[in-house]
Write a protein that binds this DNA or RNA. Structure first.
Lengths: 175, 175
DNA sequence: CTCTGATCTTCCACAAGTGACAGGTCAGAA
DNA sequence: TTCTGACCTGTCACTTGTGGAAGATCAGAG
């Protein structure tokens, strides 16, 4: 139910329509919790049904503006303080590493090099986001900065790891 | 389809029954790709259907021993070298960080402290695995060691980040 | 004024993940 | 010998995620 709480958080910061939330979502939360457009709209309807949000205005083009309800705020803080994170750790990139012995040595090396590159590229992307954002506009921005730092540090660690892994392959094959 | 390839990898290392694979799976791959027992058995049947594995022996207690087929090996190396990882990044722990402003300061701080602790505990668990395993038995072990190192480094980074985040909260609230 | 592109929502089919139940057999301990 | 626990597989209901189609309205460019 993390999508639900992601949306609640966005609405706690500021009301908005589905479309609106989709944009905000993609530029921030999607980095740690991707979701599709269809999921988002369905979830909003369900949340309205459950009384966590309410439609405060109907605009042009069938636009519905959603706002969080008190019950929604309760649910949000409950989720933060009482629900222990699931710590999802699915990682198909590292999963492949278990099986690198199944391909030719140069393929294995190539894989890790591409990994290192990918981490680097993504790291640079985040650096760019970091540089081009005003981190003091809203509370959400301020805490978004902290979340971003998590990504930066994780990616640094991952890139270092990939480079280290390459040296491991090399020393293993030459001994 | 990563579960499928995880199982292919295990079978490429050594044949085994579903039960067997479940055990091996839980002690290794599950760290980066959790799966339930029901998923595993269903997937094995599907893979047999698709000709990636075959039943090589039927033992007692309805036990079926699976082995990887040449077609399965092809699929495995194809997946490793040609399919770019999806880089799943779902992380409901970091997602909560975006919304820490929505709870009382001491709750926010408490959350990050619990996070730091959790990372530390998990890190210690991995250290234990590292110490208690013979990393030279099979190829899978050898590469498992490399994958484990990824976890160790990531968790170090995460713990450091959580501690840093706490200092950010503190400086922010006192300025 | 027409056309294009951006805004905005809903619905659907399918795949994958979760959790639980249901069933059966064998080895060895009491 | 009976019982317990380990072994072993299968199915079902439900939720979540993925991807795409469909349809409508509005703003502004040409």
């Amino acid at each position: 139910m993390s999508l639900r709480h992601g949306l609640l958080g966005l609405l706690a910061d500021q009301p908005g329509s589905g479309w609106d939330l989709l944009k905000r979502f993609d530029s921030t939360l999607a980095f740690v919790w991707p979701a599709t457009q269809s999921q988002l709209y369905t979830e909003l309807n369900r949340m309205a049904n459950d009384g966590l949000v309410e439609v405060t205005a109907q605009g042009a083009r069938n636009r519905k503006e959603y706002a969080i309800t008190p019950s929604g705020r309760d649910e949000l803080s409950h989720w933060i303080t009482d629900v222990t994170p699931e710590r999802n750790r699915r990682n198909d990139a590292v999963l492949r590493v278990f099986f690198l012995w199944a391909v030719a040595p140069h393929e294995a090396r190539g894989y890790l090099e591409r990994e290192a590159e990918a981490y680097k590229t993504f790291h640079e992307l985040l650096e760019q986001v970091k540089a081009s954002t005003n981190w003091n506009e809203t509370e959400l921005d301020r805490y978004g900065r902290i979340a971003l730092e998590n990504g930066l540090r994780a990616l640094t660690a991952y890139e270092d790891w990939a480079r280290w892994a390459i040296t491991q392959l090399d020393t293993h094959s030459t001994r």
